[in-house]
Structure formats: structure tokens, C-alpha cells
Design a protein around this nucleic acid. Structure first.
Lengths: 227, 227
DNA sequence: ACAAAAGTGTTAGGCCTACACCCATGA
DNA sequence: TCATGGGTGTAGGCCTAACACTTTTGT
């Protein structure tokens, strides 16, 4: 037992993990709760922060325990502190965001009750996780203007229509094919994989990958993507 | 005494309050610590969150207790969780940012050991508050592109050179007078106060105020300021 | 009268948007 | 052969950045 002179809240971390593919669009990774409260409801992977680890470490640890995988990077995006957000005791949660290639999450991992849900088909979640999801989506929409999010969300190789579909799914708007491609090429992030004969149209789209050096340059310098 | 089955960290809030004037440039409001640890060092106003209040409420309460004033709005911008950031016990802090008109903070209020420090003359701070300050400044630099921060930082009436100096101080760059003024006018946020005879130059600058209706429109719709 | 500060307009370049046609593939 | 989808370029408008001169004020 641990005693304190004043009451202390418990502190948890929760991870909102976004993935993407053409079939399902933008999706989040959820785990089904096996214990009360909210047993059987879906929630973000997460749990109590240990007293000798910082929140980033705790978030990665919990994520690994519950889904069996570790994203390269996670980013804190908000701390949720409503007094009654957990019925057991006072609990605040530090929320993290990560973008992953769906293929990297081994579905059917034995640790995992984890499942992907398209963001527009997410069931009612445990705790205040619905609200956390809304904030996370808003954050992602912001980030897409400043970071090449496709780099994290798409597989190694992808086509221009796929990249465009990703942007359209996240932002909920439609773009002109030509303008979109021109803008992307101007960033200098893309390199064509198996270059076909120069500029011949075909129903089979050309494949691209991200140029990692250029990506690291841009991460430092930042960039602006106008939509 | 309060006992728990597992150890719980303590949770505090800290407020980084930015103010601005011509003489001192961008400044932050600090309070001198009267008790250990870090007694005599300067720190952000803040303190322990109560068990029956959320963090926003706690931040505003502590700010009022320590500086005697309440800003119209504060915005959470990060939670700092290093294991050893407080020598007493495990403490995490939820950090808030606010922009205020320096005149609104009654200096010499009896609650207040509070003092303004220009951001480039801040002494070594208590805890990890140096790091928190760096993050806060970075956040402010981001926000200046999307929100008319002058609205919060400047007095009711101000001149174009003053507004420009504010932007230059925050971003650490210099602008061309003509281009800056044109950009600001294009936003439609400014109204001239006592219009002099049309377009006559003078060494005395004309005065402006912000148009509050237009400001509220832009807050909802958002805007983009390219620099 | 001179120095310092404020007001204003024009031009060139880049970016954003809108838009139409051709070719290859697969049904 | 027809429908679908991918690839490409151009023209107009807007915004940005660079730049010089004139008027007033205070010394």
C-alpha cells in the first residue's frame, strides 16, 4: 500500500494508432476490454503509467503488451482530466498518437484482442475515448499539412492515386489529380520505382517510394503544404 | 492520509503566461518560490491539481492564487513526466499557455511575487521549467501563423509598427513594412481608430484596433498567415 | 536644415486552381 | 469496342518579395 498526505489521481496513457489502406480507409487500432469497468467495450490500448517510467515509455510498453508491436515514434497530443472520466477512482490519461503501416501490426498476435476499425465505423468506446478520438483526428488533420504522413501510413511502395486517396480520406475533401501530383512531386519526396517509358499513360499506375534523405531534411526544416 | 494499492504520482499544473510590450519585447510571468525545493528560484505559476477539479480549473485557480488574475483563456500544450523532475516525489505537470495584455496583470498585487521577464533574460528556472519554456515558445511560434495573437497580446489600440515589432519579436525575423501592412489589412481584422487625412505620411503612426466580429469569424473558420 | 520614421504602389516570380485530351487496359 | 482510369500541360488569378520616394516631425 502507498500512502500520501493528499489524494493523488492515477495516471494512465492511451495510444490512438492510425493505419490506412484502400479498402477500409483511415482506421484506428482498438482493444476489447476484458475487465470492468466497460468490460466488452472497445478502447484504445493503454494502461497505468509506472512510478519509475516516464509517460512515453509507459505508452510504448502498454502498447506492446496489448497489441504486440512498437511503432517507431509516438507523439503526445493531449491530457484528459475530467473528474468523472473513470468510475473507479480519479484517473487522468495522457494521450498519444502514432501513424503506422497496417502491415506492421501482426493481426492475430497472441497478445492481441486488437482490431482495426475504420474511423467512421468505430463503436461506442469505453471511458471518454470517443472524445479522445475526435481530438486525435483533428490533430492528424493538422499534421497532414506539415508532415509527409504518407511516409508512415503507406507501405514502402505506393501509387499516386493511393497517396491521393489517403489525403482525401484524412481531410475529407477531393483534389484534382493533376494538381495533387504536381504538388507532391514539387516537394521532392517521391522517387519513381520502376520507371516505365517516359510519360506514357496507362491504366496501371506507376509506383513510388519516399526518399528517406529528403524526408529527414524536411523533418528538420519543416514544410508547408497548402490545400 | 490517502492510501492506494499502487503508487500514484502527484499532478500539478503550470502556466506559461506570455505578455508583450515595446520596451521589453516578449516576456513571461514568473513567480519566486518561497519554499523548498528550489526556494528563491523563479518558476511558472502553478501547483497541485485538486482531486475534485479538472486540470483546466486547477490551472486557472493556481494562477489566480499566485498572480491575482485570470486570463480569458488558457490552452494545454504538453504534459511533462520525467521521472526525476521533482526531487520530493514523482510529480508530473500539465502545462498551459496563455497570452495576455501586460496591463491586465496588476503588478504589485498583494498575492504577487510575480514579475515579468523578457524571454531572452529569463534566469535559470526551478524544476524542468526551462525546458517547458522552450516548448511553450515553440508552440507560440506555431500559433502565430494561425491566430491573430496580437489580439491577445497588445492593448486595445496599437500602431502598425508596434504590431510588426510583435511579430518580429516572436518569430525572430524582420519584415518589410509595406508587405507586412498589406498582409495585415488583407485579413480584415484591423480598423483604423482616428483616421487622419487620407494617406498623408507622418512620423506619428496611425492607430488601429482589432475588429472583434471579424476576429470571431476567423477563429471559427481559421486562417493562414504565410511568412 | 537635417535625420528619423511612416505612408504608399509597382513589378516579377511562384503557387494555386481550373480545365481537356490521349493512351492503355480489361471487360 | 467501349468504359475506366492514369498520365500530362497551360492559362489566369492571387499572393509574396523586393524595392524608392515623399511627407512630417523633432532636434
Amino acid at each position: 500500500m502507498f500512502t500520501y498526505e493528499y489524494p493523488h489521481p492515477a495516471v494512465t496513457t492511451d495510444c490512438v494508432i492510425f493505419g490506412y489502406d484502400i479498402r477500409e480507409g483511415l482506421s484506428v487500432l482498438l482493444v476489447e476490454r476484458g475487465i470492468e469497468p466497460y468490460r466488452g467495450r472497445w478502447a484504445f490500448p493503454g494502461g497505468f503509467m509506472k512510478i519509475d517510467e516516464d509517460a512515453d515509455t509507459g505508452a510504448l510498453r502498454e502498447l506492446k503488451e496489448e497489441t504486440g508491436f512498437e511503432p517507431v515514434s509516438i507523439e503526445q497530443f493531449g491530457t484528459f482530466t475530467d473528474v468523472h472520466r473513470d468510475p473507479r477512482e480519479r484517473v487522468i490519461t495522457i494521450a498519444y498518437l502514432a501513424l503506422v503501416k497496417k502491415g506492421d501490426v501482426v493481426s492475430g498476435d497472441d497478445a492481441a484482442q486488437a482490431r482495426w476499425f475504420p474511423v467512421d465505423k468505430v463503436p461506442a468506446l469505453a471511458f471518454d475515448h470517443d472524445r479522445i478520438l475526435r481530438v486525435a483526428i483533428a490533430k492528424l488533420k493538422e499534421q497532414i499539412h506539415f508532415r509527409p504522413v504518407g511516409f508512415d501510413l503507406l507501405p514502402e511502395e505506393f501509387t499516386m492515386p493511393q497517396l491521393q486517396a489517403l489525403y482525401e480520406a484524412v481531410l475529407g475533401v477531393r483534389f484534382d489529380r493533376r494538381n495533387f501530383a504536381a504538388k507532391m512531386h514539387k516537394l521532392g519526396l517521391l522517387e519513381e520505382v520502376g520507371r516505365r517509358s517516359e510519360g506514357t499513360p496507362s491504366r496501371i499506375p506507376s509506383r513510388f517510394r519516399f526518399n528517406k534523405e529528403r524526408y529527414n531534411e524536411l523533418k528538420v526544416g519543416g514544410f508547408r503544404l497548402e490545400f
